[in-house]
Every structure is written in C-alpha cells, then in structure tokens.
C-alpha cells in the first residue's frame, strides 16, 4: 500500500491562452501538512482544484489515496475534503442544517456525524445560528467542518487564513494540528508564510505553473541549523578581528556593512553553540554591542528559493 496520500505525475493544465500548470510531479506522504506557496498567478488554486477533481487537467495523473481523481472524481470526493478560498455557505440555513446536508450527501449517520464534527471544530455555540449571521472566522470553521465531516484522508485548503483576525488564525492553526494528529494529510496554501510555519511539515513552492522546490521538515531543519548572526560593534571591525570572525563563521566568510560596525557570520543555530560564539567574541576583545541570531524561517527559505529561481531566469 502506498504511503503517499497525494500522487501527481506529469500534470499539465492549460488555459485557452497559457499553460497554467506544467509537468507537475509531486508526492505528498500521509500525515503531512504541506504548505503550498507561490506568488499570485503561480497556479496554486488551479492545482488545488485539479487535486480536488473540480477541474480536469489536459494531461497527467492524480491519485488521492489510490483513487484516480481525474476519472473518478465523485469517488475521490469520499476520500478528500476541499475548501476554496472564496467559499460561501447557505446563508439562510443554520450551521446544523448545512452540516446535516453534507452528512446526508456522504450517506453518514446524520446525528452522530454532525455532533462529532461540531465537537471537533468546537462550534457548539453557533450550531443553531444561520450561516449568514456568522463572522468570517466562524464561517471558516463551519466551512472546514463541512469539508471534514466525512473524515477524509486528505484535506485541501486554499488560503484558509485570508480575512481572519489574529485570534481566528491562531485557532485555525490549532484546528489543523488537531486534524493532522488524527491522521489527516493536509495541503494548505497561504500568502502568510509565518503562519504556515506554525503547523506545516513541508513546503511546496510553485512558480509560473512549475514546482520549484519541495522541502520536508527534516530538510528544512537541516537548512535552518545554520543561521546568520548579526554582530553589532561599538567600533569599526579591524583586519585582525575580521580574520578571527572569518574563522568563526561556518562558511569561513563574513559580510561587513559599509561603516564596518555590523558583521554577519554564518553559525550553528543551537543555543549552546551561540553561547560559545559569544564567549569567543568577548575573549578576543571584539567590541560587541549587539548580538542577533536570525532564524532561517520558511519565509527566508522561500525567498531564497525565489531569488535563486530569478537568478536562473536571468
């Protein structure tokens, strides 16, 4: 049995005047929360709609938990949940009504499944309210509840955090982590990379309809074990100090600002190692007035990938 929840091979999707997705091949293992990132118009929503069986690609194969979603979209829908970025609810129905509708569509025992999903998504307080009367945050929760009522193995969320206030975003993060713990594989797109950092275990970078990178949490950890340390100096760095700093740097290189008051070196990101570094600087009488290790984040990683990609294009 395949360990991949989502398998895409050689996927091509055309709009009448351009290629929206080109030769996409990805494998997303079960239980991952994968962040799908990329600039506007990169093809994120199109890829997600193809994965959800809502759009038919020109060529290629998509398998969701072993089901060929292109040829059996309705069968595949029993295995996946999808929430688009601009979804709407049945405004005149209550939350309970819409959940009962979805449960009925999936031929689930209505009362049990509705009660369960209401508890899981913690929406007891609004269950009897009309959907039209809910705030954006609550609507988002109800939308996710509708998408996961049948406990799908794969959940695809397109920009779920857009329009949410910070509190609702934090709650969304908790919900996603809870769903992952229950074994769900989640693919989520967002523009807010800092937020994806909280819960994603892998990052998929899409640009101009092509996959630019697919980094897992382990790879990300390896990449973020080295970080930049910005050292502020009370007096300009001397040539001797420069040599010493170069020796301390992981890649034996340093970057110095024009006024020679700030030096950036590459160093291991662990607290003990940073402590040793600071001690060493002070032992050498380097006039340290500030010491700022900068964490390599998903955002910096993404920007690095984007920059590399742009350079290659040039």
């Amino acid at each position: 049995m395949s360990q991949n929840a989502i398998t895409v091979s050689s996927l091509n999707y055309y709009y009448p005047d351009k290629k929206a997705l080109e030769n996409i091949t990805i494998q997303i293992p079960k239980g991952e929360i994968t962040a799908l990132v990329g600039p506007n118009g990169a093809g994120k929503s199109t890829l997600m709609r193809c994965l959800a069986g809502l759009d038919s690609p020109f060529s290629g194969e998509i398998s969701i938990c072993g089901i060929d979603i292109i040829n059996n979209p309705r069968q595949g829908h029993s295995k996946l949940g999808y929430l688009s970025d601009d979804f709407g609810l049945y405004e005149e129905l209550t939350v309970k009504d819409v959940l009962e509708y979805m449960a009925g569509c999936h031929e689930l025992p209505i009362k049990d499944s509705v009660d369960t999903v209401i508890k899981r998504l913690k929406i007891e307080s609004v269950q009897d309210k009309k959907c039209g009367a809910l705030s954006r945050g609550w609507k988002q929760r109800v939308g996710i509840a509708m998408a996961v009522i049948h406990m799908p193995e794969v959940l695809i969320l397109d920009e779920p955090a857009s329009g949410l206030d910070p509190e609702a975003r934090s709650e969304l993060s908790t919900i996603l982590k809870d769903l992952q713990k229950e074994g769900m594989t989640i693919l989520v797109s967002s523009h807010i990379l800092s937020e994806l950092e909280e819960y994603s275990t892998a990052m998929l970078v899409l640009r101009d309809g092509k996959i630019k990178d697919h980094i897992t949490l382990e790879q990300q950890k390896a990449l973020t074990s080295i970080s930049s340390v910005h050292i502020g100096l009370s007096s300009p760095v001397t040539p001797a100090q420069k040599i010493h700093l170069e020796n301390l740097s992981q890649d034996k290189k340093i970057s110095v600002t024009e006024n020679r008051h700030t030096v950036t070196i590459q160093h291991k990101n662990e607290p003990e190692q940073l402590n040793i570094l600071l001690k060493s600087l002070l032992d050498e009488n380097i006039p340290v007035c500030s010491f700022t290790p900068s964490q390599s984040t998903l955002q910096t990683l993404y920007l690095e990938i984007a920059q590399t990609d742009k350079n290659q294009d040039k």
Binding site: A52, L54, D86, F87, G88, M102, C105, H106
Partner: peptide, 10 residues
C-alpha cells in the same frame, strides 16, 4: 459560492 460544496458531494 456554495456551488463547490455541491460539486464536492458524492
């Protein structure tokens, strides 16, 4: 924009 839910139902 609730059409997608119907499209997604089996």
């Amino acid at each position: 924009k609730s059409w997608t839910f119907m499209e997604l139902s089996p």
